[in-house]
């Protein structure tokens, strides 16, 4: 077994645990959103699109990780799940901005903000670390899509080698 394969086998369980934890939190958020929405309150409408998109992205990512752990990274289902995860997660940081702005405005309107908890979004989001973190969170789903392409190519190569043998 190569060094990369050993590293992958060590990292995949860690990643599965982290994504399952995130999925659990998102699931609780989703149920909370739906409950709030059933009472006809606004925050549910504001956060529901982001929660659904992020949940779907992490769902496919977890599926890809589990399949990669059990059957190896070159299984065809890994690349298809990764591609879908990338496509869903790409929209997650983009939807987060209107969601946070909407929630901030709603909290201000309802008077739930104290001076210290107010986000002061224009200045805050223009600080370099927040801005760069946001760009990084958009680039990672693009990498997932690119990775699914590489995996397809690797699997096709493996099939050709088996056929030749």
């Amino acid at each position: 077994m190569t060094r990369s394969r050993r590293l992958l086998n060590a990292l995949l369980p860690l990643l599965i645990v982290a994504t399952v934890l995130i999925l659990t939190v998102l699931g609780v958020l989703l149920i909370g959103d739906l409950l709030v929405l059933s009472y006809g309150d606004w925050p549910g409408v504001l956060t529901l699109p982001w929660t659904v998109v992020t949940f779907a992205g992490y769902w496919f990512l977890t599926l890809a990780l589990v399949v990669a752990w059990r059957r190896g990274p070159l299984c065809s289902r890994v690349s298809s799940h990764l591609s879908r995860a990338g496509q869903w997660l790409f929209w997650s940081p983009l939807l987060l901005i209107p969601t946070v702005l909407g929630l901030d405005r709603l909290l201000t309107v309802r008077g739930w903000h104290t001076d210290s908890s107010q986000m002061h979004l224009p200045g805050e989001s223009f600080s370099p670390d927040v801005l760069l973190s946001m760009v990084v969170s958009v680039t990672l789903p693009l990498l997932l899509m690119a990775l699914s392409g590489w995996l397809d190519e690797g699997r096709a190569s493996l099939d050709r080698q088996r056929t030749t043998i």
Binding site: S4, L7, L15, L74, W150, L151, S157, Q161
Partner: peptide
């Protein structure tokens, strides 16, 4: 950690 695993997957794929 995801990027490290990503690099390991790329290594395996490029080896093939």
């Amino acid at each position: 950690v995801g990027l490290l695993a990503f690099a390991a997957v790329l290594n395996v794929t490029f080896q093939v």
